[in-house]
Simulated scan of single mutants.
Amino acid sequence: MARDTLHGLRSSPRHALAKPVRPIDADDAERVAAVMTRFCEADPDPKAGFDDTDPFRLLVTVLLSAQSTGPTVARIAEALFSTVRDPAGMLALGEARILEIIRPVGLGPSKARNIVKLSAALISEHGGAVPRSSVAMRRLPGIGRKSAEVTANFAFHEPVIAVDTHVFRVSNRIPLASGATVDAVADGLARLVPERFKDGAHVWLFRHGRDTCTARKPACPRCPVADLCLWPGKEL
């Protein structure tokens, strides 16, 4: 069985399985809860194998994953962290050498620059440690909402649901929380997903979008939530 890769982070082997906010619609909430219940029943421990995740490595890896494929990012992150363990080590490595290592992931110059700035900020502002909240992480150089929420959720179990391409598509298609922007979908999921499901929601939705509810030719006949899906293009 191939190892699972999310945002460039490989798990250890897994066994199978301030704006006005509109009121939550009861039907929407019921459908979201039903979908999450179904995912949870099929995969009750979605983050198995990620429990020993190093926050700094994860944060840098997710930064590297922008516009890059997971397997490539995982390989490059492994090369980068084979000699570097912490922000101080990253600063010592230097921007030029970092760029040499990470160039295959694309956008290398800006990513190398942000890794150096990020490392310096962690040392000067946080004693060399990654802050535990996604809000604090978003103040770091090069770290946007998705990177912060993936890291906070995986490393510290903060109940936030990061929205990437897969989560955005699935959330709009079923729909769970519709929105024209990533922030709109993330805000909607934060309101609609019951608290007990928030820790695993990102992984469930990511895997569902990657493996089943794909952009082209979604596998509706084997979708575990097909009966709950309202997408007009659904084919059973």
Rank of each mutant, 00 (worst) to 15 (best):
A121P: 01
G8A: 13
E149R: 11
D54P: 00
A180T: 07
D27K: 13
V160W: 10
L6I: 15
F197S: 05
D211E: 13
D45T: 10
L230D: 09
F197D: 05
L9H: 05
L140Y: 04
P71W: 07
K19F: 02
S171R: 01
P55K: 00
S11F: 04
L63Q: 05
E30I: 09
F39Y: 11
A148S: 14
G128V: 09
E235M: 11
N114I: 07
V32S: 04
H126R: 04
P141M: 05
V167N: 03
G142W: 01
R145L: 08
H15N: 06
G106L: 07
G142V: 15
V225D: 02
P218A: 08
L236D: 07
P87M: 07
A180V: 09
F168R: 00
L17A: 07
A129G: 08
A77W: 00
A155F: 05
E78S: 14
V150T: 08
A226T: 04
L107S: 05
L64H: 05
I102R: 00
A177S: 08
R103S: 11
E78F: 14
D187W: 03
D199C: 14
L236F: 09
P194F: 01
L140R: 00
F156L: 15
N172Q: 08
I24E: 15
P131R: 01
I76S: 04
I161K: 10
F81W: 03
K19V: 11
L230M: 08
V193M: 06
A190S: 11
A162I: 09
R57E: 13
R85T: 15
S110G: 12
G179L: 06
I123V: 12
I102Y: 02
F154T: 10
G70L: 06
R113D: 06
G49N: 03
L6V: 15
P71F: 04
E158S: 13
E195R: 10
L107F: 05
T69V: 14
T212F: 12
R31P: 04
L91A: 07
A77C: 14
E95N: 09
A74W: 06
A186S: 14
S110E: 14
K234N: 02
H166V: 12
R57K: 11
M90L: 15
L230T: 08
H157A: 15
F56I: 12
T61H: 02
R207N: 13
R14E: 00
P109D: 13
G128C: 11
L236V: 12
D54I: 03
A34P: 05
D199K: 14
R207L: 15
Q67G: 08
P159F: 12
R191A: 08
E125R: 14
G127V: 06
A79E: 15
H126F: 12
G200F: 02
R57A: 11
R216N: 15
R97H: 12
A66E: 03
E158K: 14
R222L: 14
I101R: 07
P87K: 02
P218F: 11
L64A: 01
